[in-house]
Amino acid sequence: MNKLSDLRKSYEQGELDENLAANEPMVQFKQWLDHALASKVPEPNAMTVATVGADGRPSTRIVLIKGFDERGIVWFTNYDSRKGQELAVNPHAALQFHWVELERVVRIEGQVVRVDAAESDAYYQSRPLDSRLGAWASPQSQVISSRSVLVANAAKAALQHGLHPQRPPHWGGYRLLPEAWEFWQGRKSRLHDRLSYRLQDGSWFKQRLAP
């Protein structure tokens, strides 16, 4: 059995030149995300969301990006979940995409706001029925005695809301408003490429970081 300290990988798939990278980080992100989609990497839309609670302790979880534009990055969740409670007291977060097969990482930091009700309603209604009912059934992040609680809650939600459930008031979207980006491309000999974008006076400032 290999020891963890013996595991090695040489990163040789690509490079990231600051002179060729986009001047706008959202443009660069779209290029990389489109490449991840075209390359059919597993769950290219999966991202880590890191938040910090009132106690100063960080926590992370995986969620799925559901949209992005010049305003920011959007995902949907239960507002009463741990991440929702932490964002209520500290509305800032860090996101990370890791496309292992492409040897790429994207990190994004910024303020987080709730999307408006109409946007949350529209996305909720686009979800499969089971997922819409699941939003009613799961008291996310709360302790439950067994899985049977979820099954019973789902059955109750189906009887109560039928085939056309409305969005629960405790469920909806968040948008991270980017203030900082980092794009990481693995390179040989651990001399990785790292590009940082920082928002300064309304414009993005791009610079290279040491690996």
Rank of each mutant, 00 (worst) to 15 (best):
K66F: 04
Q96G: 10
A158G: 01
L4F: 09
T60Y: 03
P91Y: 09
N78S: 10
A54S: 13
P139V: 10
G84T: 13
P178H: 12
P211T: 15
M1E: 03
Q142G: 05
Q28S: 01
W204I: 06
V52S: 07
G202V: 09
G110E: 08
G56L: 14
S5D: 12
W99A: 05
K3G: 14
W204Y: 07
S59N: 09
S196H: 14
K83G: 06
K83L: 09
D193Y: 10
D55I: 13
E43G: 02
T48N: 11
Q160K: 02
T77Q: 04
H161T: 01
L64S: 07
H98T: 07
Y123R: 13
G172F: 12
T51M: 13
N45M: 15
H92W: 05
V113A: 07
D201C: 03
S203D: 12
R57K: 15
L102W: 06
K206N: 02
Q142Y: 04
Q185F: 12
L133I: 01
Q140V: 08
G53R: 05
K156R: 15
S148G: 05
V63H: 05
P58H: 14
R190Y: 11
K156E: 00
K156F: 01
W171Y: 11
R57V: 14
A46V: 08
M26Y: 08
R107F: 05
M1T: 07
Q125G: 04
A122C: 13
A135Q: 04
E182W: 06
G56N: 11
E15V: 11
D201W: 04
Q140T: 04
L33V: 02
W136F: 00
L87E: 06
A22W: 00
Y11T: 03
K30A: 14
D116W: 14
L150V: 01
S141Q: 06
G14P: 06
A94D: 10
A155M: 02
F183L: 08
F205G: 00
A158W: 00
K40M: 14
D69T: 03
L37P: 01
D121Q: 15
S148F: 13
P58Y: 15
N90C: 11
D34P: 05
R167Y: 00
R82D: 13
S138F: 10
L102M: 15
S5F: 07
H98P: 00
S148A: 15
T77L: 07
L129W: 12
G14R: 04
V106Q: 06
E70G: 09
V151H: 03
L4E: 09
L95K: 05
D80I: 02
R190E: 08
P42T: 14
D121E: 14
P58W: 15
F76Y: 15
R127I: 07
P44R: 11
K83Y: 11
Q160A: 02
E86V: 08
V115S: 10
F68E: 03
G162L: 01
A155E: 03
